[in-house]
Design a protein around this nucleic acid. Sequence first.
DNA 1: CGAATTTGACCTGCGC
DNA 2: GCGCAGGTCAAATTCG
Length: 304
Amino acid sequence: MSDHEFRDFYYQAAFHNDQQGVGETGMYRVSSSLQDPSYMSFTDCLHSSMDYCSLEKAFGLSPSSSEVFSSVEGNQTKQAGAGDLGGNTSEVMTTPNSSISSSSSEAGCEEDSDKSKKDRQPKGSEDGGESSKKGNKAKKKGEKKQREPRFAFMTKSEVDHLEDGYRWRKYGQKAVKNSPYPRSYYRCTTQKCTVKKRVERSFQDPSVVITTYEGQHNHPLPTTLRGSAAGLFPPSMLTPSPLAGPSFPHELFLQMPHHMNNQAGSAGSMFAENFSPFQQYHHQVPDYGLLQDIVPSRFLKHEP
DNA sequence: CGAATTTGACCTGCGC
DNA sequence: GCGCAGGTCAAATTCG
């Protein structure tokens, strides 16, 4: 997918959103969170709007809910990933009352080699040599790390770091070009979990937070977190194995549709396998038009 | 006191 | 080759 296509997608998404008049209650920011009165966490939002029967609402299938859009980063030319969602001219347009959760996935892509922006192995990687403190960063240049599936979504929120049930440790922050808002980098604190996320605020709509997840959790939600995160989701969502179902809320977005790739034209199919757990759903769904691309059939099928 | 955050330096890839 | 921008590291600092 080229930058333009990527951009177009978001424009369309916004347009679509407007047309549907979606909005009122998004998955975002509501002032009635259990723990934090200032906002509703993503987890809370999912919980509140979610059981599988009502996900369709949560995902914009009903007029009163937020909308989820997906897109797949085919060949991320210059990492047009979510990072750029808020960073350049391709800004998303959200209606004041709506939450657009757009997901961009770039799965796997071992082939993104040349492009893969570094992704250096977590420090202390096996090359054994942490030479001097900072000198060792140039490790294994030949080795291209596979890129994790990545998906982003936008959430209207006053807080940058949305609670999603997992514990994150911030490991960096950078100013983003063309945006007055910095981008924060978080890493899952669970050992051996390599999931990362980036959080930035849209410069066009400061109320919109763009969160990009990279990788998949290989562990259940921490039970201790904010009391009840683990209890918020059905067992299938807590399963470590991606094949058994999303292991964390955002993985729901993974179910989106590989064929957004096809739309994009380029490099589409190469990502399909990364969505394999969900392809079956895709194939099962009747024709819901765009919705089938956006919403997993398992949600759709519950429709009355 | 341990964990989390901040922040400046460093590294890498890309475009010119 | 150079400069820019994104991403990461890790020491210092702050927080619980």
